[in-house]
Design a binder for these strands. Structure first.
Lengths: 234, 234
DNA sequence: GAGTGGTCTAGACCACCCT
DNA sequence: GGGTGGTCTAGACCACTCC
């Protein structure tokens, strides 16, 4: 071996990755067992285990108890991105952040919201609309529904200064949810608020958040200003 | 403690998460050291370490060598999604997949591609345009540039049957890249190909892929049919 | 039944970084 | 300097699954 000592589990990971790229172990093939690899690398089995587990988490290896470790055939790569917190997102770009509450009402939600938030047709939810700006220019338009029976404390929240997102993060521990990314056409109302042309294409994020008991806390739609793009590194 | 034995590192993770949700340890606060927690849970320090590391990877804890483990103030959640392989994406939705190569040319790329792929103004790159269909109906329009000097073998590839994406996955081990998600308005040509109205909003994915030596292999833009949304679970 | 990965333990040393 | 997390080791037992 030409390798300059393999000690840490990261070293093992690197070496295994190298062999995967060089097709020393081809897609679909079985890798040597952990003990064997440990012997070759001159380290403990635990160390090899840690490395292989990490690679498996990235989706490049598949491990089974009796079946050994196998190279995944179609390496369906996984990307992880950090869910943007709008204020930080803007501030990190070097702009000043400002925020304005446009409206706050208790309303009967439309059908799609009733469905996605799993509430009856007579329920009233808190409906918030807000605008986030970068250097005083519109950046993203927020349209949010909050289930007040799941989060009663929201009645006392003042959203004039603090955005709903930040209030929720601080006051309501949540456990899960889902995302949908899409594109929509700016209507005249959107265009007016976002200070753009009607008919422009808006990058849109819809997000639903539920608590540990799977009750939907909030459902929000974010429409970004035209030209916005969400960047992710692999 | 009312807890029914804490043995595995997953048990520790669950218990720590529970305390984070219950604000036993509040945002910004310092957790007890690993040895202390190990004593409380009645397990080895290694086990506690594994659990805390996993939570830290999710962005909820921050760990420093001398500074201990701290609850992150603004838990910037991370989401991980699998990069869609178009054919599988369509087939898993229960549709039949078909694919058509629209054009294949060696061309001088426009300025934005020259920049993003880091090539000189006289370089010629392989330019591919293709359409992916679900049940014979347009689903996504692919516009791809491949650097032929980085991937010479591409000259011999036949993209009439196999899509460029799948060919690249099979033949060119890549190591990294980046994504940009955005929205764009369908021009008349796009609308014609995708069989939709001009002016519709198209969800757009741009992706750049480079090899281990950071040479850009390919840059691709995918325009999805109107109404498409990309879904991610947390 | 037997072999593989999954995990735990106890002890040890190291790297980092705050005071 | 000293305390914290980061990691390695060696040995052990368990759980799953293929044969």
């Amino acid at each position: 071996m030409s390798d300059p000592t393999i000690n840490t589990w990261l070293d093992v990971q690197t070496e295994v990755m190298r062999r995967l790229h060089k097709r020393v172990w081809k897609p679909g093939e079985l890798l040597p067992g952990e003990i064997e690899l440990a012997a070759e690398f001159g380290c403990a089995r635990t160390t090899v285990n840690r490395a292989l587990q990490a690679i498996a988490e990235d989706g490049l290896l598949e491990r089974k108890r009796r079946g050994g470790t196998r190279v995944v055939v179609h390496p369906e790569r996984k990307a992880t991105f950090t869910i943007p917190v709008i204020r930080l997102q803007i501030e990190q770009s070097g702009y000043s952040y400002s925020y304005r509450l446009l409206s706050r009402r208790n309303e009967r939600p439309p059908a799609n919201i009733r469905t996605s938030m799993d509430v009856g047709r007579d329920s009233r939810l808190l409906h918030l609309r807000a605008l986030h700006c970068a250097d005083q220019r519109p950046y993203v338009l927020e349209d949010r529904w909050i289930n007040t029976s799941v989060v009663p404390a929201v009645a006392d929240a003042d959203f004039k200064l603090q955005s709903p997102n930040e209030w929720l993060v601080e006051h309501v521990p949540f456990s899960g949810g889902d995302f949908a990314l899409s594109a929509c056409v700016a209507g005249t109302a959107d265009a007016d608020t976002l200070d753009c042309d009607a008919g422009a294409a808006l990058f849109t994020v819809e997000r639903r958040t539920h608590n540990a008991r799977l009750a939907v806390i909030t459902s929000v739609q974010l429409k970004y200003v035209p030209g916005y793009s969400m960047r992710i590194a692999l």
